[in-house]
């Protein structure tokens, strides 16, 4: 345990997770009603969450350009970036299923986890369901996306 806390990589992860969670709470993402209001395009639309996406993406876009000029990260040996560039079936099928769940419950993974001690039951149920879903995903993928049509990615 002490060793875990001595690692700068681990300590920065704790701090970053903390700030991320504070950001989610302030932004309104931990209120499922607001998320569903944002997705309620054909009804009484609540545009607030556009500013969450805009603020977060804007800041990241600027800083990322500066960060990747470094040879390596401060506390680890290399930048670990996704290598896949293809828009393939798993990407699209997964996004459809995720979007349906997001609209159904009003939670995406970060806000669900941040809300587990909020005193509400729903975030706990959401995280249980999400954990089961993550574990079951390879089976479901095998059913939905036959291996034959999938080139190596």
């Amino acid at each position: 345990m002490i060793e875990v806390l001595r690692s700068r990589e681990n300590l920065i992860s704790l701090a970053v997770g903390f700030v991320f969670g504070i950001g989610l709470a302030i932004s309104g993402m931990t209120q499922p009603g607001k998320v569903i209001g944002f997705l309620d395009f054909t009804g009484n639309w609540d545009p607030s969450l556009i500013f969450v996406m805009g603020g977060g993406t804007g800041v990241y876009m600027l800083l990322y350009q500066l960060i990747i000029r470094n040879e390596q990260p401060r506390f680890t040996s290399s930048f670990q970036l996704p290598t896949s560039k293809v828009i393939d079936r798993p990407l699209v099928v997964g996004a459809v299923i995720f979007g349906l769940g997001w609209g159904l419950g009003g939670f995406c993974p970060g806000p669900g986890l941040t809300s587990i001690f909020s005193g509400n039951v729903n975030p706990i149920l959401f995280v249980i369901g999400m954990s089961a879903g993550i574990l079951a995903a390879p089976k479901v993928e095998g059913l939905l996306i036959p291996r034959l049509v999938e080139p190596q990615s």
Binding site: P32, S84, P138
Partner: peptide
């Protein structure tokens, strides 16, 4: 008040929503 839930989704609905989110995020990376 930052955690107020006005959506009023039921428990089963939320569990199913979590299941879909979990499956979707893993398949969709």
């Amino acid at each position: 008040q930052m955690f107020v839930d006005t959506a009023g989704r039921g428990m089963i609905t939320t569990l199913v929503a979590g299941l879909l989110v979990g499956i979707g995020v893993r398949i969709g990376s």
